[in-house]
Simulated scan of single mutants.
Amino acid sequence: MLNPDSVLLLQGALGLYLAAALVQLCLLGGERRALRRGALALTGLAFALQTLYLASAWAQVGYLPVTNLFSTLFFFSWAMGGTFLYFELRYRIGAAGLFVLGVTMLLLVGALRRGPMISPLIPALDTPLFTMHVAFSFMGYALFAMAFSVAVAYLLPNFLRPPSMPSRELLRRHNEEAILLGFVFFSLCMISGSIWAYVAWGYWFSWNIKGVWSFIVWLFYAGMCHAKFVRRWQGEGYALLSIAGFFVVLFTYLGIGLLLQSNHPLE
Rank of each mutant, 00 (worst) to 15 (best):
S242H: 12
C189G: 12
F144L: 08
T83L: 12
C26Y: 12
A178P: 01
L125H: 05
S137C: 12
V212K: 10
G223E: 07
G211V: 03
L250V: 06
F70S: 01
V61K: 10
Y63R: 14
S167L: 14
L266Q: 02
R232W: 05
I122N: 01
Y198T: 01
R114Q: 10
V109G: 08
R161G: 05
L9A: 08
L180T: 10
V109Y: 04
L27Y: 10
A34F: 12
Y198K: 05
M117P: 00
R168M: 08
T43Y: 07
Q261T: 14
G97M: 11
Y91P: 02
V212W: 14
S262K: 11
G257Y: 10
F144H: 03
T72H: 03
L69E: 06
G115I: 09
S6A: 15
N3L: 15
M132L: 10
G202V: 02
Y17C: 02
V150L: 11
A124G: 01
R114D: 03
F215K: 05
G38M: 15
Y53N: 07
F74W: 14
L125R: 01
I191S: 02
R168W: 11
G29L: 04
P157W: 12
L188F: 13
R37N: 13
I256A: 03
Q234S: 09
A222H: 09
I179T: 00
E88I: 01
F185H: 03
L170G: 01
D5M: 13
P128Y: 08
V199D: 00
E176R: 14
P166H: 15
A244N: 07
G15L: 04
L18Q: 11
K210H: 08
T252W: 09
S6C: 03
T127Q: 02
F70L: 08
Y53P: 01
S262R: 13
G15K: 03
E169R: 15
A48K: 02
F159N: 11
T83Y: 07
K228H: 02
P166E: 12
L250R: 03
G29C: 04
